[in-house]
């Protein structure tokens, strides 16, 4: 079996490859002062970190995965949205998400009501899973994002790579967008059985989800930490 030309030469550890190609002419991109290597999170190909211009996209030279996107809206936008998301988290937690009424009785559910119901039903581990994936994960992720972005913004010492790695791991388990879909499915499903209406908590929760998506979108590039997906910290 012969290796294909597009694969490029094998990259032994320690040898840096040319900067990844970008959508637009990326040749004028200046190199970051840091000496960190940027490892493709999928195929492990090594790249030298480059500063991307607005709207540029860095793709892996070997497997074609998107490595990072250029800042689209200005450097402070991710931080602004991360703070917005954290502010939204409080009303999202204490205001009703859905309100059901039946036989003159009215009952409102908070985003946490599902956790309580699962716990009462004797399914504490599942309640914990829902708590982490739906509420705790997103909030902690936002807090870490703010901490990481603020230290960069204020020019303080670079944040520990372990924190970045933790945020990456946590982002796989924080899935508030799936929770929003579940609320909408519940709303549709219960329409036949009870009178149901959407409460203000859902709007704040949805706002938090959007904030996370926007803040996280530009995050990978903002701090090109030389961290691979499988837990090795290379520096």
């Amino acid at each position: 079996m012969h290796s294909r030309a597009e694969s490029g030469p094998p990259a032994p550890a320690g040898i840096k490859n040319p900067p990844p190609p970008s959508d637009e002419s990326g040749d004028e991109s200046e190199r970051l002062p840091s000496d960190g290597r940027f490892i493709c999170r999928l195929c492990g190909y090594e790249h030298q970190p480059v500063r991307l211009a607005r709207g540029e996209r860095a793709v892996c030279a070997r497997c074609g995965a998107t490595l990072a996107k250029g800042v689209r809206d200005g450097a402070d936008v991710p931080l602004a949205f991360a703070i917005t998301g954290l502010i939204f988290a409080l009303p999202a937690a204490v205001l009703p998400v859905l309100t059901a009424s039946k036989f003159g009785n009215e009952h409102s559910a908070l985003i946490l009501s599902g956790v309580a119901a699962l716990s009462h039903g004797g399914l504490q581990p599942i309640a914990m899973l829902v708590l982490i994936c739906g509420i705790l994960g997103p909030v902690v992720l936002l807090a870490i994002l703010i901490a990481l972005l603020l230290t960069t913004r204020l020019g303080a010492a670079p944040p520990p790579a372990a924190l970045f790695l933790f945020a990456q791991q946590l982002s796989r388990w924080a899935m508030p967008e799936v929770h929003v879909l579940a609320v909408l499915v519940a709303f549709a499903k219960l329409g036949d059985l009870v009178t149901i209406s959407i409460g203000p908590g859902l709007w704040f929760y949805g706002g938090m989800v959007l904030s996370i998506v926007i803040a996280w979108r530009s995050f990978d590039l903002e701090i090109p930490a030389p961290v691979s997906r499988h837990g090795e910290v290379i520096s």
């Binding site: 998400v97 859905l98 059901a100 039946k102 009952h107 559910a109 908070l110 009501s113 599902g114 956790v115 309580a116 119901a117 699962l118 039903g121 599942i126 309640a127 899973l129 829902v130 994936c133 739906g134 799936v178 929770h179 879909l181 579940a182 609320v183 499915v185 519940a186 499903k189 219960l190 059985l193 009870v194």
Partner: peptide, 11 residues
């Protein structure tokens, strides 16, 4: 999983 939690929390 979210759906079962929400339904049983609401009704």
């Amino acid at each position: 999983v979210f759906l079962v939690g929400l339904l049983s929390g609401l009704v």
